[in-house]
Design a protein around this nucleic acid. Structure first.
Lengths: 205, 205
DNA sequence: TGTACATCAGTGAACGCGCGTTCACTGATGTAC
DNA sequence: TGTACATCAGTGAACGCGCGTTCACTGATGTAC
Protein backbone atom coordinates (compact mmCIF):
# COMPACT_ATOMS: atom_id res chain seq x y z
CA UNK A 1 0.00 0.00 0.00
CA UNK A 2 2.77 2.40 0.78
CA UNK A 3 5.05 3.74 -1.89
CA UNK A 4 5.29 4.26 -5.55
CA UNK A 5 3.17 2.53 -8.13
CA UNK A 6 1.99 -0.82 -9.31
CA UNK A 7 5.55 -2.03 -8.89
CA UNK A 8 5.15 -2.31 -5.14
CA UNK A 9 5.25 -5.86 -3.88
CA UNK A 10 2.77 -6.79 -1.18
CA UNK A 11 4.55 -9.71 0.47
CA UNK A 12 5.63 -13.06 -0.75
CA UNK A 13 3.77 -12.63 -4.01
CA UNK A 14 4.63 -9.61 -6.07
CA UNK A 15 1.33 -9.23 -7.85
CA UNK A 16 2.66 -7.60 -10.99
CA UNK A 17 6.11 -9.00 -11.45
CA UNK A 18 6.01 -9.48 -15.19
CA UNK A 19 5.28 -5.82 -15.86
CA UNK A 20 7.75 -4.77 -13.19
CA UNK A 21 10.54 -6.79 -14.79
CA UNK A 22 9.86 -5.34 -18.24
CA UNK A 23 9.93 -1.87 -16.72
CA UNK A 24 13.19 -2.66 -14.93
CA UNK A 25 14.79 -3.99 -18.13
CA UNK A 26 13.68 -0.90 -20.01
CA UNK A 27 15.19 1.35 -17.36
CA UNK A 28 18.47 -0.59 -17.32
CA UNK A 29 19.07 -0.39 -21.05
CA UNK A 30 18.12 3.27 -20.97
CA UNK A 31 20.56 4.09 -18.18
CA UNK A 32 23.41 1.68 -18.82
CA UNK A 33 22.93 0.47 -22.36
CA UNK A 34 22.20 -3.00 -23.62
CA UNK A 35 25.57 -4.14 -22.27
CA UNK A 36 24.33 -3.34 -18.76
CA UNK A 37 21.36 -5.64 -19.04
CA UNK A 38 21.21 -8.94 -17.17
CA UNK A 39 18.40 -11.01 -15.75
CA UNK A 40 19.97 -10.75 -12.32
CA UNK A 41 20.10 -6.97 -12.46
CA UNK A 42 16.44 -6.86 -13.46
CA UNK A 43 15.53 -9.11 -10.55
CA UNK A 44 17.52 -6.89 -8.21
CA UNK A 45 15.76 -3.73 -9.40
CA UNK A 46 12.37 -5.38 -9.08
CA UNK A 47 13.26 -6.57 -5.59
CA UNK A 48 12.81 -10.29 -6.21
CA UNK A 49 15.12 -13.27 -6.13
CA UNK A 50 17.34 -14.07 -9.07
CA UNK A 51 15.32 -17.10 -10.06
CA UNK A 52 12.00 -15.32 -10.30
CA UNK A 53 12.26 -13.96 -13.86
CA UNK A 54 12.52 -17.45 -15.31
CA UNK A 55 8.95 -18.14 -14.18
CA UNK A 56 7.67 -15.35 -16.42
CA UNK A 57 10.01 -15.22 -19.42
CA UNK A 58 11.83 -18.52 -19.56
CA UNK A 59 15.08 -16.88 -20.57
CA UNK A 60 16.86 -13.57 -20.90
CA UNK A 61 15.93 -13.39 -24.57
CA UNK A 62 12.26 -13.66 -23.68
CA UNK A 63 12.45 -10.58 -21.50
CA UNK A 64 14.41 -8.58 -24.06
CA UNK A 65 11.82 -9.48 -26.67
CA UNK A 66 9.14 -7.86 -24.53
CA UNK A 67 11.20 -4.69 -24.25
CA UNK A 68 11.70 -4.61 -28.02
CA UNK A 69 7.94 -4.93 -28.54
CA UNK A 70 7.43 -2.09 -26.09
CA UNK A 71 9.89 -0.08 -28.15
CA UNK A 72 8.09 -0.65 -31.42
CA UNK A 73 4.76 0.20 -29.85
CA UNK A 74 6.05 3.44 -28.41
CA UNK A 75 7.72 4.41 -31.69
CA UNK A 76 4.47 3.71 -33.51
CA UNK A 77 2.61 5.94 -31.10
CA UNK A 78 5.11 8.73 -31.54
CA UNK A 79 4.82 8.55 -35.33
CA UNK A 80 1.04 8.28 -35.30
CA UNK A 81 0.82 11.35 -33.09
CA UNK A 82 2.29 13.39 -35.95
CA UNK A 83 -0.88 13.16 -38.01
CA UNK A 84 -1.01 14.52 -41.54
CA UNK A 85 -1.89 17.71 -43.36
CA UNK A 86 -2.21 18.83 -46.97
CA UNK A 87 1.51 19.46 -47.12
CA UNK A 88 3.14 16.06 -47.57
CA UNK A 89 6.67 17.41 -47.44
CA UNK A 90 5.95 19.07 -44.12
CA UNK A 91 4.39 15.85 -42.85
CA UNK A 92 7.49 13.90 -43.74
CA UNK A 93 9.72 16.43 -42.02
CA UNK A 94 7.67 16.18 -38.87
CA UNK A 95 7.80 12.38 -39.06
CA UNK A 96 11.57 12.55 -39.38
CA UNK A 97 11.78 14.84 -36.37
CA UNK A 98 9.57 12.47 -34.38
CA UNK A 99 11.66 9.46 -35.38
CA UNK A 100 14.96 11.05 -34.42
CA UNK A 101 13.47 12.49 -31.24
CA UNK A 102 12.30 9.03 -30.25
CA UNK A 103 15.73 7.53 -30.86
CA UNK A 104 17.51 10.18 -28.79
CA UNK A 105 14.93 10.08 -25.99
CA UNK A 106 14.91 6.27 -25.78
CA UNK A 107 18.36 5.18 -26.92
CA UNK A 108 18.16 1.81 -25.19
CA UNK A 109 14.86 0.86 -26.75
CA UNK A 110 15.92 2.18 -30.13
CA UNK A 111 19.15 0.22 -30.21
CA UNK A 112 17.46 -2.96 -29.03
CA UNK A 113 14.86 -2.64 -31.78
CA UNK A 114 17.68 -2.96 -34.31
CA UNK A 115 19.43 -5.84 -32.62
CA UNK A 116 17.49 -8.85 -33.91
CA UNK A 117 20.20 -11.14 -32.56
CA UNK A 118 19.06 -10.38 -29.02
CA UNK A 119 15.36 -11.11 -29.36
CA UNK A 120 13.14 -14.00 -30.31
CA UNK A 121 12.50 -13.31 -33.98
CA UNK A 122 10.16 -16.30 -34.16
CA UNK A 123 7.69 -14.49 -31.94
CA UNK A 124 4.97 -13.47 -34.42
CA UNK A 125 4.42 -10.26 -32.51
CA UNK A 126 7.92 -9.11 -33.42
CA UNK A 127 7.48 -8.73 -37.17
CA UNK A 128 3.93 -7.48 -36.66
CA UNK A 129 4.84 -4.68 -34.28
CA UNK A 130 7.87 -3.49 -36.25
CA UNK A 131 5.81 -3.36 -39.44
CA UNK A 132 2.96 -1.59 -37.71
CA UNK A 133 5.26 1.02 -36.22
CA UNK A 134 6.47 2.15 -39.62
CA UNK A 135 3.20 1.92 -41.52
CA UNK A 136 2.20 5.54 -40.96
CA UNK A 137 5.59 6.59 -42.19
CA UNK A 138 5.28 4.42 -45.31
CA UNK A 139 1.84 5.86 -45.98
CA UNK A 140 3.18 9.39 -45.83
CA UNK A 141 5.78 8.55 -48.44
CA UNK A 142 3.15 6.87 -50.60
CA UNK A 143 1.07 10.07 -50.48
CA UNK A 144 3.89 12.13 -51.94
CA UNK A 145 3.49 13.82 -55.26
CA UNK A 146 5.93 12.63 -57.86
CA UNK A 147 6.69 9.41 -56.06
CA UNK A 148 9.19 7.23 -57.80
CA UNK A 149 7.91 4.30 -59.76
CA UNK A 150 9.72 1.99 -57.38
CA UNK A 151 7.95 2.84 -54.18
CA UNK A 152 9.95 0.38 -52.10
CA UNK A 153 13.16 2.04 -53.14
CA UNK A 154 11.88 5.44 -52.12
CA UNK A 155 10.61 4.24 -48.76
CA UNK A 156 13.96 2.64 -48.13
CA UNK A 157 16.06 5.67 -49.01
CA UNK A 158 13.92 8.11 -47.07
CA UNK A 159 13.82 5.79 -44.07
CA UNK A 160 17.58 5.28 -44.35
CA UNK A 161 18.29 8.96 -44.18
CA UNK A 162 16.22 9.37 -41.02
CA UNK A 163 17.62 6.23 -39.49
CA UNK A 164 21.17 7.24 -40.32
CA UNK A 165 20.74 10.63 -38.68
CA UNK A 166 19.49 9.00 -35.51
CA UNK A 167 22.36 6.53 -35.43
CA UNK A 168 25.09 9.03 -36.20
CA UNK A 169 23.93 11.34 -33.43
CA UNK A 170 23.47 8.48 -30.97
CA UNK A 171 26.95 7.16 -31.73
CA UNK A 172 28.57 10.54 -31.26
CA UNK A 173 29.51 11.06 -34.90
CA UNK A 174 27.51 14.24 -35.43
CA UNK A 175 29.75 16.21 -33.13
CA UNK A 176 32.36 16.39 -35.84
CA UNK A 177 29.91 18.40 -37.93
CA UNK A 178 27.84 20.31 -35.40
CA UNK A 179 30.05 21.69 -32.73
CA UNK A 180 28.99 20.83 -29.21
CA UNK A 181 25.62 19.44 -30.26
CA UNK A 182 24.24 17.27 -27.49
CA UNK A 183 21.32 15.02 -28.46
CA UNK A 184 18.92 17.48 -26.85
CA UNK A 185 20.36 20.49 -28.63
CA UNK A 186 20.54 18.61 -31.89
CA UNK A 187 16.83 17.80 -31.85
CA UNK A 188 15.67 21.20 -30.66
CA UNK A 189 18.05 23.54 -32.46
CA UNK A 190 19.83 21.85 -35.37
CA UNK A 191 17.55 19.27 -36.90
CA UNK A 192 14.42 21.32 -37.66
CA UNK A 193 16.32 23.83 -39.75
CA UNK A 194 18.34 21.12 -41.40
CA UNK A 195 15.21 19.26 -42.47
CA UNK A 196 13.51 22.38 -43.79
CA UNK A 197 16.59 23.17 -45.84
CA UNK A 198 17.59 19.87 -47.39
CA UNK A 199 15.13 17.10 -46.72
CA UNK A 200 13.68 15.02 -48.20
CA UNK A 201 15.14 14.89 -51.66
CA UNK A 202 12.99 15.01 -54.76
CA UNK A 203 12.81 12.01 -57.03
CA UNK A 204 11.18 13.56 -60.07
CA UNK A 205 14.50 14.63 -61.60
CA UNK B 1 58.95 -22.39 -41.34
CA UNK B 2 56.05 -24.62 -42.15
CA UNK B 3 52.59 -23.26 -42.62
CA UNK B 4 50.70 -20.18 -43.44
CA UNK B 5 52.00 -16.64 -43.23
CA UNK B 6 53.61 -14.17 -40.96
CA UNK B 7 51.31 -15.45 -38.24
CA UNK B 8 53.39 -18.58 -37.80
CA UNK B 9 55.19 -18.77 -34.50
CA UNK B 10 58.71 -20.00 -34.54
CA UNK B 11 59.05 -21.28 -30.99
CA UNK B 12 58.83 -19.63 -27.66
CA UNK B 13 58.75 -16.18 -29.19
CA UNK B 14 56.06 -15.52 -31.70
CA UNK B 15 57.83 -12.85 -33.67
CA UNK B 16 54.79 -10.97 -34.83
CA UNK B 17 52.26 -11.42 -32.09
CA UNK B 18 50.87 -7.91 -32.06
CA UNK B 19 49.83 -8.06 -35.71
CA UNK B 20 48.61 -11.63 -35.28
CA UNK B 21 46.33 -10.64 -32.39
CA UNK B 22 44.85 -7.74 -34.34
CA UNK B 23 44.20 -10.07 -37.24
CA UNK B 24 42.61 -12.63 -34.91
CA UNK B 25 40.36 -10.00 -33.32
CA UNK B 26 39.32 -8.76 -36.75
CA UNK B 27 38.44 -12.29 -37.82
CA UNK B 28 36.47 -12.97 -34.65
CA UNK B 29 34.26 -9.90 -34.90
CA UNK B 30 33.75 -10.64 -38.59
CA UNK B 31 32.67 -14.25 -37.96
CA UNK B 32 30.92 -14.03 -34.60
CA UNK B 33 30.19 -10.37 -34.10
CA UNK B 34 31.48 -8.03 -31.46
CA UNK B 35 29.72 -10.11 -28.80
CA UNK B 36 31.99 -13.02 -29.73
CA UNK B 37 35.15 -11.07 -29.01
CA UNK B 38 37.29 -11.76 -25.98
CA UNK B 39 40.97 -11.45 -25.24
CA UNK B 40 41.11 -15.15 -24.44
CA UNK B 41 39.58 -16.12 -27.77
CA UNK B 42 42.09 -13.92 -29.60
CA UNK B 43 44.95 -15.56 -27.71
CA UNK B 44 43.55 -18.99 -28.59
CA UNK B 45 43.32 -18.17 -32.28
CA UNK B 46 46.83 -16.76 -32.30
CA UNK B 47 48.08 -19.87 -30.51
CA UNK B 48 49.52 -18.12 -27.46
CA UNK B 49 48.74 -18.19 -23.77
CA UNK B 50 45.91 -16.14 -22.36
CA UNK B 51 48.23 -13.71 -20.63
CA UNK B 52 50.21 -12.79 -23.72
CA UNK B 53 47.90 -10.08 -25.17
CA UNK B 54 48.32 -7.94 -22.08
CA UNK B 55 51.98 -7.45 -22.94
CA UNK B 56 51.02 -5.76 -26.22
CA UNK B 57 47.76 -3.97 -25.59
CA UNK B 58 47.39 -3.60 -21.86
CA UNK B 59 43.68 -4.35 -21.97
CA UNK B 60 40.87 -5.60 -24.15
CA UNK B 61 39.95 -2.04 -25.07
CA UNK B 62 43.46 -1.44 -26.37
CA UNK B 63 43.16 -4.31 -28.82
CA UNK B 64 39.69 -3.28 -29.97
CA UNK B 65 40.99 0.22 -30.58
CA UNK B 66 43.55 -1.17 -33.00
CA UNK B 67 40.85 -3.03 -34.89
CA UNK B 68 38.74 0.12 -35.11
CA UNK B 69 41.71 2.01 -36.53
CA UNK B 70 42.21 -0.76 -39.07
CA UNK B 71 38.55 -0.38 -39.96
CA UNK B 72 38.78 3.34 -40.57
CA UNK B 73 41.90 2.91 -42.65
CA UNK B 74 40.32 0.26 -44.83
CA UNK B 75 37.14 2.30 -45.27
CA UNK B 76 39.26 5.30 -46.26
CA UNK B 77 41.07 3.20 -48.85
CA UNK B 78 37.80 1.91 -50.27
CA UNK B 79 36.44 5.43 -50.61
CA UNK B 80 39.66 6.85 -52.06
CA UNK B 81 39.70 4.10 -54.66
CA UNK B 82 36.51 5.52 -56.12
CA UNK B 83 38.27 8.57 -57.53
CA UNK B 84 36.35 11.38 -59.14
CA UNK B 85 35.12 12.43 -62.54
CA UNK B 86 33.39 15.45 -64.04
CA UNK B 87 30.03 14.07 -62.97
CA UNK B 88 29.71 14.83 -59.27
CA UNK B 89 26.40 13.08 -58.91
CA UNK B 90 27.84 9.91 -60.36
CA UNK B 91 30.85 10.24 -58.06
CA UNK B 92 28.60 10.47 -55.06
CA UNK B 93 26.64 7.43 -56.14
CA UNK B 94 29.80 5.42 -56.50
CA UNK B 95 30.96 6.61 -53.09
CA UNK B 96 27.67 5.50 -51.61
CA UNK B 97 28.00 2.11 -53.23
CA UNK B 98 31.54 1.78 -51.91
CA UNK B 99 30.47 2.76 -48.40
CA UNK B 100 27.61 0.27 -48.25
CA UNK B 101 29.72 -2.42 -49.86
CA UNK B 102 32.35 -1.91 -47.22
CA UNK B 103 29.82 -2.18 -44.42
CA UNK B 104 28.32 -5.41 -45.77
CA UNK B 105 31.70 -6.95 -46.55
CA UNK B 106 33.18 -6.07 -43.15
CA UNK B 107 30.24 -5.98 -40.75
CA UNK B 108 32.38 -6.52 -37.67
CA UNK B 109 34.74 -3.68 -38.45
CA UNK B 110 31.90 -1.41 -39.49
CA UNK B 111 29.91 -1.94 -36.31
CA UNK B 112 32.97 -1.52 -34.13
CA UNK B 113 33.77 1.79 -35.83
CA UNK B 114 30.45 3.10 -34.54
CA UNK B 115 30.80 1.77 -31.02
CA UNK B 116 32.88 4.46 -29.35
CA UNK B 117 32.09 2.93 -25.98
CA UNK B 118 34.33 -0.03 -26.80
CA UNK B 119 37.47 1.81 -27.84
CA UNK B 120 39.90 4.26 -26.35
CA UNK B 121 38.57 7.57 -27.59
CA UNK B 122 41.48 9.39 -25.99
CA UNK B 123 43.84 7.80 -28.48
CA UNK B 124 44.61 10.70 -30.82
CA UNK B 125 44.76 8.30 -33.76
CA UNK B 126 41.07 7.53 -33.33
CA UNK B 127 39.64 10.93 -34.22
CA UNK B 128 42.34 11.39 -36.86
CA UNK B 129 41.63 8.17 -38.72
CA UNK B 130 37.85 8.51 -38.64
CA UNK B 131 38.08 12.04 -39.99
CA UNK B 132 40.56 11.04 -42.66
CA UNK B 133 38.37 8.16 -43.81
CA UNK B 134 35.48 10.46 -44.62
CA UNK B 135 37.43 13.37 -46.04
CA UNK B 136 37.17 12.22 -49.65
CA UNK B 137 33.48 11.82 -49.21
CA UNK B 138 33.13 15.31 -47.74
CA UNK B 139 35.15 16.75 -50.62
CA UNK B 140 32.83 15.14 -53.17
CA UNK B 141 29.85 16.78 -51.51
CA UNK B 142 31.67 20.10 -51.42
CA UNK B 143 32.28 19.86 -55.17
CA UNK B 144 28.59 19.57 -55.90
CA UNK B 145 26.84 22.20 -57.94
CA UNK B 146 24.11 23.95 -56.06
CA UNK B 147 25.43 22.96 -52.69
CA UNK B 148 23.39 24.23 -49.81
CA UNK B 149 24.59 27.27 -47.96
CA UNK B 150 25.00 25.14 -44.85
CA UNK B 151 27.55 22.66 -46.07
CA UNK B 152 27.73 20.81 -42.76
CA UNK B 153 24.01 20.11 -42.93
CA UNK B 154 24.33 18.71 -46.41
CA UNK B 155 27.28 16.49 -45.56
CA UNK B 156 25.38 15.19 -42.59
CA UNK B 157 22.18 14.36 -44.44
CA UNK B 158 23.93 12.71 -47.37
CA UNK B 159 26.16 10.74 -45.04
CA UNK B 160 23.13 9.79 -42.95
CA UNK B 161 21.29 8.34 -45.89
CA UNK B 162 24.24 6.15 -46.86
CA UNK B 163 24.91 5.18 -43.29
CA UNK B 164 21.26 4.37 -42.69
CA UNK B 165 21.11 2.10 -45.72
CA UNK B 166 24.13 0.18 -44.51
CA UNK B 167 22.70 -0.23 -41.03
CA UNK B 168 19.21 -1.22 -42.12
CA UNK B 169 20.57 -3.91 -44.41
CA UNK B 170 23.07 -5.13 -41.83
CA UNK B 171 20.35 -5.34 -39.19
CA UNK B 172 18.02 -7.30 -41.43
CA UNK B 173 15.44 -4.53 -41.85
CA UNK B 174 15.70 -4.22 -45.62
CA UNK B 175 14.19 -7.64 -46.15
CA UNK B 176 10.78 -6.18 -45.40
CA UNK B 177 11.15 -4.01 -48.50
CA UNK B 178 13.29 -6.07 -50.85
CA UNK B 179 12.17 -9.63 -50.81
CA UNK B 180 14.91 -12.12 -50.19
CA UNK B 181 17.71 -9.60 -50.55
CA UNK B 182 20.84 -10.96 -48.95
CA UNK B 183 23.61 -8.43 -48.34
CA UNK B 184 25.41 -9.69 -51.44
CA UNK B 185 22.37 -9.45 -53.67
CA UNK B 186 21.45 -6.08 -52.24
CA UNK B 187 24.80 -4.56 -53.15
CA UNK B 188 25.05 -6.17 -56.57
CA UNK B 189 21.45 -6.07 -57.80
CA UNK B 190 19.33 -3.64 -55.79
CA UNK B 191 21.45 -0.74 -54.66
CA UNK B 192 22.96 0.50 -57.96
CA UNK B 193 19.55 0.97 -59.57
CA UNK B 194 18.16 2.47 -56.42
CA UNK B 195 20.92 5.07 -56.26
CA UNK B 196 20.60 6.00 -59.91
CA UNK B 197 16.88 6.49 -59.45
CA UNK B 198 16.56 8.42 -56.24
CA UNK B 199 19.87 9.51 -54.82
CA UNK B 200 21.16 11.91 -53.71
CA UNK B 201 18.51 14.54 -53.29
CA UNK B 202 18.85 18.00 -54.71
CA UNK B 203 19.09 20.96 -52.40
CA UNK B 204 18.57 23.80 -54.79
CA UNK B 205 14.77 23.66 -54.51
C1' DT C 1 -18.94 -20.16 6.73
C1' DG C 2 -15.46 -23.48 6.91
C1' DT C 3 -12.21 -26.91 5.39
C1' DA C 4 -9.28 -29.61 2.26
C1' DC C 5 -6.60 -29.38 -1.48
C1' DA C 6 -4.62 -27.96 -5.94
C1' DT C 7 -2.27 -24.50 -8.16
C1' DC C 8 0.48 -20.66 -8.50
C1' DA C 9 4.49 -17.42 -7.56
C1' DG C 10 8.68 -16.51 -5.51
C1' DT C 11 12.93 -18.36 -2.69
C1' DG C 12 17.64 -19.32 -2.09
C1' DA C 13 21.26 -22.21 -2.74
C1' DA C 14 23.93 -24.36 -6.00
C1' DC C 15 25.88 -25.69 -10.69
C1' DG C 16 29.31 -24.67 -14.17
C1' DC C 17 30.84 -21.22 -17.34
C1' DG C 18 33.95 -17.77 -19.53
C1' DC C 19 35.79 -13.71 -18.62
C1' DG C 20 39.90 -9.82 -17.61
C1' DT C 21 43.70 -9.27 -15.15
C1' DT C 22 47.81 -10.25 -12.31
C1' DC C 23 52.33 -12.16 -11.40
C1' DA C 24 56.34 -14.82 -10.49
C1' DC C 25 58.54 -17.51 -13.78
C1' DT C 26 61.37 -18.93 -17.83
C1' DG C 27 63.04 -19.27 -22.37
C1' DA C 28 64.96 -16.54 -26.12
C1' DT C 29 67.22 -12.64 -27.95
C1' DG C 30 70.37 -8.96 -28.34
C1' DT C 31 74.25 -6.16 -26.76
C1' DA C 32 78.74 -4.78 -24.56
C1' DC C 33 83.17 -5.90 -24.14
C1' DT D 1 84.82 -15.46 -31.72
C1' DG D 2 83.27 -15.99 -27.16
C1' DT D 3 81.20 -14.85 -22.78
C1' DA D 4 78.40 -12.37 -19.34
C1' DC D 5 74.47 -10.07 -18.69
C1' DA D 6 70.33 -7.21 -19.47
C1' DT D 7 66.15 -7.00 -21.71
C1' DC D 8 62.34 -8.72 -23.93
C1' DA D 9 58.30 -11.90 -24.93
C1' DG D 10 55.45 -15.51 -23.70
C1' DT D 11 53.90 -19.04 -19.89
C1' DG D 12 50.67 -21.04 -16.86
C1' DA D 13 48.45 -20.97 -12.75
C1' DA D 14 45.58 -18.43 -9.95
C1' DC D 15 42.41 -14.58 -8.34
C1' DG D 16 37.65 -13.00 -8.10
C1' DC D 17 33.74 -11.69 -10.78
C1' DG D 18 28.97 -11.82 -12.70
C1' DC D 19 26.38 -14.42 -15.39
C1' DG D 20 22.08 -17.86 -16.92
C1' DT D 21 19.86 -21.59 -15.49
C1' DT D 22 18.14 -25.33 -12.50
C1' DC D 23 15.52 -27.25 -8.71
C1' DA D 24 13.57 -28.78 -4.48
C1' DC D 25 11.30 -25.90 -1.43
C1' DT D 26 7.68 -22.95 0.73
C1' DG D 27 4.43 -19.40 1.33
C1' DA D 28 0.20 -17.49 -0.60
C1' DT D 29 -3.87 -17.76 -3.26
C1' DG D 30 -7.93 -19.57 -5.19
C1' DT D 31 -11.42 -23.18 -5.83
C1' DA D 32 -14.57 -27.15 -4.87
C1' DC D 33 -17.64 -28.86 -1.88
Amino acid sequence: MRGTTTLEKSGYHHGNLKAALIEAADAIIRDKGIEGFSLRECARQAGVSIGAPAHHFGSAMGLLTEVALLGYESLGEALNAVGHSDDVRSDLQRLALAYVSFALAHPGRFRLMFRPDLVNRDDPRYAASSTAALSGFAHAIARRDGAASDRMAEIFVVWSSIHGMANLVLDGKAKYLFEGATPERFVSAVLPGLLAQTWPFGTSG
